[in-house]
Nucleic acid binder design. Structure first.
Lengths: 230, 230
DNA sequence: AAATTGGATTAGTCATGGCTAACATCTGAA
DNA sequence: TTCAGATGTTAGCCATGACTAATCCAATTT
């Protein structure tokens, strides 16, 4: 049914890319995407219906929405542009990692692919955006993202920060100030069993307490605590 | 009447910036700008009426159009973005000067001002775009552009290339191959009195014949032929 | 002076993608 | 089981900015 590759509009690209980013935490509800895009639920409902008609999303009224394979392919092109631009903004233009999501969002629909490719090449083909998310290649292949977050760790476990959610600038500024950036090694010193607050320690930074929502924004890979320093 | 600084749309910016660039050769006719923007004259007519209502252009039906001071101010912001982006594309990303006008046009409406400023800074505050046109500063001040073109030179006169029209990619490729780039010194060896063809010579490049339209695309400053090699 | 012609303009239509208001559906509690 | 409140959808509207077709000015030609 959805056999029309007829150049997506800016709005369509916005919906698809946000759908992709929200889909990490399960199927997406209409109100959720409306809120992220700053439109009314009515508008989002209309656009989702349209995208469904185009075969880009799976959406059968009053239920949750998810991308079809075609939709995911299209979304990955936009996500790729977004993440390359973010890297460029931090690495070449020295913007802070808490600013670049918003800026890249404004730019991602207007940069011709040849320019994105040239920037990527200039940067030496970076593997991830500044927040640690993998950059899809030109054919739409992406590395898997870790499912484990700090909220899933137990006291005494060590883990390496892989990526962080990029949506909240002030959270990002805080995480950086506490050393919680991709690549950082952390140790869980406490997990409060009542309210699920987690306390972590990063070398050379004091202990940091994280509320559950914050802990879920930091994705990690467990470090096998075998000896030998790298 | 035109007291609304209410964020211009992409289309409005396009009209203003092309109006600015066409205005160099006198007031602009409706069909001319329609053609440049790739829309029908009817569409252009409607938009010019709208811009006139906003106080950004001077346009009283069936006559030529020109920018008001407000309109010129707005246009210069767009022109500034355009030219900074062109410089970035040639200097940092190694695109050819015949490609960058089109690419910059796609990008100029989407780059936030802070990004344009950062790029400008990265490039060391260039004075001109790759075609030699001056880059307006943040306050909308621009250096004057020379009125003299190669078509206005006499045999035996020497001149320095200041800037070239950027509209035709194949012309640009040709001009570069003949050494006719900003900064080049040229000598007029012949002016054909019948068809106004001009023959010029650039050091280390053979003689080049230019049809009148081409000669008008190359703006120059006369070199005072006083002795002393620089 | 009248007629022809070409560029400019108006009138009317369409597509996109927002909005509000009203209606439908789902869910969780009584 | 039923009903209240939240969430989703439809209906109808508006603005933007393109298009075609028809008309209007003005400038040149006869």
């Amino acid at each position: 049914m959805g056999s029309s590759p007829h150049q997506l509009s800016r709005a369509e690209e916005d919906y698809l890319s946000d759908l992709y980013r929200l889909a990490a935490d399960g199927p997406v509800r209409t109100g959720e995407i409306a809120q992220r895009l700053g439109v009314t639920p009515a508008s989002a409902s209309g656009m989702l219906k349209h995208l469904s008609h185009e075969g880009l999303v799976e959406h059968r009224g009053y239920g949750a929405t998810s991308l079809t394979p075609d939709g995911e392919r299209a979304a990955l092109q936009v996500v790729r542009r977004h993440r390359v631009i973010e890297r460029f903004l931090t690495d070449t233009l020295q913007f802070g990692w808490e600013q670049v999501d918003v800026l890249a969002h404004q730019m991602e629909h207007a940069l011709p692919d040849v320019v994105v490719d040239a920037i990527e090449c200039l940067l030496g083909d970076p593997a991830t955006c500044p927040h640690g998310h993998p950059i899809p290649d030109r054919d739409g292949h992406v590395a898997a993202e870790p499912a484990l977050t700090v909220a899933g760790l137990l006291p005494g476990e060590r883990a390496r920060v892989e990526e962080v959610d990029e949506f909240d600038p002030s959270l990002l500024a805080y995480l950086r100030s506490r050393g919680l950036v991709p690549g950082a090694l952390l140790l869980v010193t406490q997990v409060n069993p009542i309210d699920a607050t987690v306390v972590v320690e990063v070398p050379n930074v004091g202990p940091t307490a994280l509320a559950p929502a914050t802990a879920r924004a930091v994705r990690v890979a467990r470090e096998i605590p075998q000896g030998g320093k790298t």
